[in-house]
């Protein structure tokens, strides 16, 4: 890869959890101390090339949003570094870091929850570029109109409030707001999840068009495998705070390497002509308060070996451009 636009290495986020009375008592009696720390993201390495779309999939609680929020500068990592165009953000002076953070914007799932209901669309979209000095205030209205046209909204509606729009249109407003500060990189966190299928298709098409027109790079977070398969160049699969597989999208979907990736792809609902017998993997996702030792997937893995419960497999390049964290790759 040429110099990536964004690279994270060893990125981790732990959340401290206050112990309740019983737990504090148990701890005094010698119970595991670590239970008060929630490992949301653990040691993630990921480099994204300029113009690339990297899809991030995994089941709820696996750490996708936490990773995305760290990348977007909304959450401070507990460990590890984030490099923007080759420079470690921690090495930048505050002004430089601020500038880099503006270049990375986030689009959220629920536009209603992320748009201030008391602001008019013109202010929602126009405020940040004015505050950050990207657009003089007297040109704000024209900049807003331009942004609205870019995302397929009628600028005639800029005096309206968010609740006067449909779900799909509100998501367009959320996208326009993110684009207004001229970012290079969008973290899209479940940005089409709340939309009906027919509207979802329109917004996916919008993301694809914007990528071309504005030369954007995306970290595209979704629990929907079909969406990620359609839009991403590469796909990363997370489980319990870690990336367990990372590969070019067509190859990953054609032949997943990691047993968890395989299970996830097998069980994703697809429109089929035949009735299916569901043959699910057993068990639940373990708690990130107490992640299993060794391979995090071993309690549910149909291929688990004795080694899997003791030794954690690293994410390794198992074939050109294909990364997987599974001991099975050693025995081949």
């Amino acid at each position: 890869m040429t110099r990536p636009i964004l690279a994270v290495s060893g990125l981790s986020k732990r959340f401290e959890r206050k112990l309740d009375v019983v737990e504090r008592f148990a701890r005094r009696l010698g119970a595991s101390v670590d239970d008060s720390v929630l490992h949301a993201v653990s040691g993630v390495d990921l480099a994204v090339a300029e113009g690339e779309v990297v899809g991030l999939v995994g089941e709820s609680g696996c750490g996708k949003s936490t990773l995305g929020r760290m990348v977007a500068g909304l959450l401070t990592p507990s460990d590890g570094s984030i490099q923007w165009r080759g420079t470690d953000l921690r090495d930048l002076p505050p002004a430089g870091r601020h500038e880099a953070n503006l270049k990375i914007q986030m689009v959220f799932q629920d536009p209603m929850a992320s748009l201030n209901p008391r602001l008019r669309v013109a202010d929602i979209i126009g405020e940040a570029p004015v505050v950050h000095g990207l657009v003089p205030r007297r040109e704000a209205a024209e900049a807003v109109a331009e942004m609205m046209r870019t995302v397929g909204l009628d600028p005639g509606y800029m005096r309206r409030y968010p609740h006067q729009f449909s779900g799909g249109q509100r998501q367009r407003i959320g996208i326009a707001r993110a684009l207004a500060v001229k970012p290079d990189f969008l973290v899209c966190d479940e940005s089409v999840a709340a939309l009906d299928v027919s509207i979802q298709a329109q917004i996916i098409n919008l993301f694809m068009r914007l990528r071309e027109e504005l030369r954007l790079t995306y970290l595209f977070i979704s629990h929907d495998l079909g969406v990620v398969q359609h839009i991403s160049d590469r796909t990363a699969i997370m489980y319990l705070g870690r990336i367990v597989e990372l590969a070019p999208t067509p190859e990953l979907f054609a032949a997943p390497n990691h047993p968890y990736a395989r299970a996830l792809l097998d069980e994703a609902p697809r429109v089929t002509l035949e009735k299916r017998r569901f043959a699910p993997i057993r068990g639940e996702i373990p708690s990130p308060l107490n992640p299993p030792a060794g391979c995090p997937f071993h309690p549910r893995c149909p291929h688990a070996m004795p080694r899997c419960s003791q030794e954690r497999p690293d994410l390794r390049e198992v074939a050109p451009a294909r990364w997987s964290a599974c001991h099975l790759n050693d025995t081949l």
Binding site: S166, S198, I204, Q229, H230
Partner: peptide
């Protein structure tokens, strides 16, 4: 037609215009 997996990867999805 709007279901992503029923479209060729990377091309615009066939979508229904307008809204519900």
């Amino acid at each position: 037609d709007s279901v992503p997996s029923r479209n060729r990867r990377g091309v615009p999805l066939r979508s229904i215009p307008g809204m519900t």
